[in-house]
Simulated assay, not measured.
Amino acid sequence: MHEDIIEKAWTDEHFRQQLHSNPKQALRDAFGIDIPDNVKIRTVEEQQNDYVLVIPPNPSKVNYDVNCGPWRT
């Protein structure tokens, strides 16, 4: 799914802009993904000479599987 979202952002300018301004709505509209209100979504767009390193939460300190995301069951 992650790859599908990225590919759509590369090819659909409106989706990319909505993903930045209202990511939950963009994901709901494009992929039918409903993300709970208690989950915060932020987008970061890398530039050619940037690399964003995302450090996930320590699994021993959270109550969900970080490999599946907090909204997955």
Results as ranks from 00 to 15, higher is better:
residue 60 S to H: 08
residue 27 L to H: 06
residue 5 I to S: 01
residue 4 D to I: 08
residue 58 N to V: 02
residue 62 V to M: 03
residue 46 E to M: 14
residue 64 Y to W: 12
residue 4 D to W: 04
residue 29 D to T: 13
residue 63 N to W: 01
residue 71 W to K: 00
residue 44 V to N: 05
residue 57 P to G: 03
residue 56 P to H: 00
residue 54 V to I: 15
residue 30 A to I: 04
residue 20 H to E: 13
residue 40 K to T: 11
residue 23 P to E: 11
residue 41 I to F: 02
residue 6 I to M: 06
residue 22 N to K: 06
residue 68 C to V: 11
residue 55 I to S: 02
residue 41 I to E: 08
residue 18 Q to Y: 06
residue 36 P to Y: 02
residue 31 F to R: 06
residue 10 W to M: 15
residue 29 D to P: 08
residue 31 F to I: 09
residue 63 N to T: 05
residue 22 N to I: 09
residue 4 D to T: 11
residue 17 Q to I: 11
residue 71 W to P: 02
residue 52 V to Q: 11
residue 7 E to N: 13
residue 3 E to H: 12
residue 52 V to A: 15
residue 73 T to N: 13
residue 53 L to M: 08
residue 1 M to Y: 09
residue 52 V to Y: 10
residue 45 E to M: 11
residue 43 T to G: 11
residue 19 L to P: 08
residue 45 E to L: 06
residue 11 T to F: 13
residue 30 A to K: 07
residue 32 G to T: 08
residue 22 N to S: 14
residue 11 T to E: 10
residue 32 G to I: 03
residue 64 Y to I: 03
residue 18 Q to C: 13
residue 71 W to Y: 13
residue 38 N to D: 10
residue 10 W to D: 10
residue 22 N to M: 05
residue 54 V to G: 04
residue 25 Q to A: 15
residue 2 H to D: 08
residue 31 F to C: 09
residue 24 K to T: 01
residue 56 P to D: 00
residue 65 D to V: 00
residue 3 E to P: 03
residue 56 P to C: 00
residue 25 Q to M: 14
residue 44 V to E: 10
residue 35 I to L: 04
residue 69 G to C: 05
